[in-house]
């Protein structure tokens, strides 16, 4: 299915992402465990390792870190291009490598909650289980659906990172800053607009339809289900659709990558 070249590139990118991830985690451990531990030794306050472990959501943390890493692919692209790798192969390999790393991340996250004591039980810390955990009558089915959802969601968000990251690569550094500022401004204006319209009677129509849309997207269109037994069908479809858009979107964008002198 994969050519030898595609396999080598996938392995290369997977290793790269793994090394970067471990590097970040190493510094996080230094920052959040070792330094506080050293400080606690000095002022003889015992470090609350229990509390730290309880409050560390490894799965969610990896989810966030991996999608952040997915944003920065240009360095790899440059090196691969210098080594005779086509854009198509780069795209394919990057998608596969991030599927591997994000799935691995979620499995590690789940194992962490299962194996490490002092953690909340898995279904209590999982957002999915909180919202959709009682949808099926069979609890095993709910757990399987949750696993599928978490892995899928983690991957699609990573894909989103790849997609957005590659769009940014098309622009020069200056343009990127401008776009970032524009998006941030738009965001602030948008949020304040919604907030103000929610509080004013004249805009309640619009606010209500936005609210309706949100309820529809999270799987409670009729707004009468209780938390925990929302219908996960729509969220699944939304996330799949987003995945497809990011997937093909990044292919198109990467096909237009240029090598700039930066």
């Amino acid at each position: 299915m994969l050519t030898a070249k595609e396999r080598s590139v996938t392995i290369y990118l997977f290793k790269r992402a793994l090394v970067q991830l471990l590097y970040i985690i190493f510094w996080m451990i230094v920052g959040f465990v070792l330094v506080p531990a050293a400080i606690s030794l000095i002022n003889s306050n015992p470090l609350d390792l229990k509390g730290l472990l309880r409050n560390t959501h490894v799965g969610q943390m990896l989810f966030f870190l991996i999608s952040l890493l997915a944003l920065f692919g240009y360095r790899d692209f440059k090196l691969l291009n210098q080594n005779g790798i086509s854009r198509k192969t780069y795209w394919k390999a990057r998608l596969l490598a991030y599927f591997g790393i994000s799935t691995l991340g979620q499995i590690v996250g789940i194992l962490f909650t299962l194996l490490v004591p002092f953690q909340d039980s898995w279904n209590r810390s999982s957002i999915y289980m909180e919202m959709y955990g009682k949808f099926f009558a069979n609890p095993l089915l709910n757990i399987l659906a949750a696993l599928a959802f978490i892995i899928l969601a983690a991957y699609v968000v990573a894909l989103g990172g790849i997609f957005v990251g590659s769009i940014f690569t098309l622009f020069t550094r200056k343009q990127r800053v401008l776009i970032f500022v524009a998006l941030a401004t738009l965001n602030v204006v948008g949020v304040s607009f919604i907030a103000s319209s929610a509080s004013q009677d004249s805009f309640t129509g619009l606010a209500r339809s936005i609210l309706k849309l949100i309820y529809f997207l999270v799987g409670d269109a009729s707004r009468n289900a209780t938390l925990g037994s929302f219908d996960p069908t729509v969220p699944f479809i939304v996330i799949l659709l987003a995945g497809i858009v990011f997937c093909y979107g990044s292919r198109i964008v990467i096909a237009h990558f240029k090598l700039k002198s930066e």
Binding site: T3, K5, E6, Q82, G84, I85, S86, R87, K88, T89, A255, L259, S261
Partner: peptide
């Protein structure tokens, strides 16, 4: 977009 063609090429450049 062809790896088998691109692997036959090496471009050493100032960049």
């Amino acid at each position: 977009d062809d790896d088998s063609a691109l692997e036959q090429i090496y471009l050493m450049s100032e960049r």
